[in-house]
């Protein structure tokens, strides 16, 4: 028994050598490529995304327009490339704000406990009752449409998800002896939270951020689709699905389908990434 355990433990570091997960690599490369495309839009987009050409509306795939043109004669590929900017920036901001807020609230709740924890939990429960889309619609009704109101509303809507999951993880960590040992060792509370708790919940934080990104992208696209967010003629994928609808009826579904596929692919990439990160975390947690 003793030797078997010893051998297993000696062997452990070798087995631990992180093998590369092709799904994580694939999803990361895809997401990275989308970000690069968004950043390089001015240089790689073949046309001005907003220049309409009434002589070339609803064109099919051609050498001049790889993905055809939309009902206003704008180049679909150019609009997809430029649309990547706001379509990715919106969810990125939402996730950045929501995870930052959520992490701080979660760790503070777990550490301070008591009344603070109860108040935070109740407020999060109340926010939970409102779906993100509803919150975004209310925000637009109050502050007018445009890119800012939905982003702020969705940041608030996603905070409870992140807070709830990270709070219970922080609470679990907080009750482990290594945190007690830090406390008994005289480590200041702030350092315990930032240098011990945070790194230990970080893999979960990344997972949640990736999973929420996909969901935020879809919700934001839905907001755009409903005409509540970014206004035409600005290109976002969600808006392109919406404005392409008239063309679908006219038998030219290209623009809608292309932007729809892009949304789906991006969301799937983020979800796969989140899923695999979660699995890896679970394995390492053993």
């Amino acid at each position: 028994m003793a030797t078997a355990a010893a051998i297993a433990e000696i062997a452990a570091p070798v087995r631990r050598r992180r093998h590369i997960d092709p799904v994580i690599v694939g999803a990361s490369v895809l997401i990275g490529a989308l970000v690069v495309v968004a950043l390089l839009a001015p240089w790689i987009s073949p046309y001005d995304p907003n220049s309409a050409n009434i002589l070339a509306t609803n064109q099919g795939v051609s050498a001049a327009h790889w993905l055809g043109t939309d009902p206003s004669g704008r180049d679909v590929l150019s609009r997809l490339i430029w649309g990547a900017r706001l379509s990715l920036l919106g969810p990125a901001l939402i996730i950045l704000i929501a995870t930052t807020l959520g992490t701080v609230l979660a760790i503070a709740s777990a550490w301070i406990g008591g009344l603070f924890d109860q108040v935070v939990s109740r407020v999060m429960d109340i926010l939970f009752a409102f779906p993100g889309l509803v919150l975004a619609m209310v925000a637009v009704a109050m502050f007018g449409s445009g890119p800012i109101a939905p982003v702020v509303a969705l940041s608030i809507a996603y905070t409870p998800y992140i807070t709830r999951i990270l709070r219970s993880a922080s609470l679990r960590e907080r009750n482990l002896p290594y945190i007690s040992a830090c406390y008994v060792g005289g480590v200041p509370a702030r350092s315990i939270c930032s240098r011990h708790l945070l790194p230990n919940i970080f893999p979960l934080l990344l997972t949640q951020a990736a999973l929420s990104f996909g969901s935020a992208l879809v919700t934001l696209a839905a907001v755009s689709y409903l005409g509540l967010g970014v206004q035409p003629p600005t290109a976002t994928w969600g808006l392109m699905v919406a404005t392409g609808q008239t063309a679908i009826l006219a038998g030219h579904p290209g623009a809608s389908i292309a932007s729809g596929i892009l949304i789906i692919v991006t969301v799937v990439a983020f979800n796969l990434l989140g899923d695999r990160l979660a699995n890896r975390h679970a394995v390492q947690g053993l």
Partner: peptide
């Protein structure tokens, strides 16, 4: 005063 806990698997910060 310092303390050593029972479970060696959770009394060190894994990171």
């Amino acid at each position: 005063v310092q303390i050593v806990f029972q479970d060696p698997y959770s009394s060190l910060d894994p990171r």
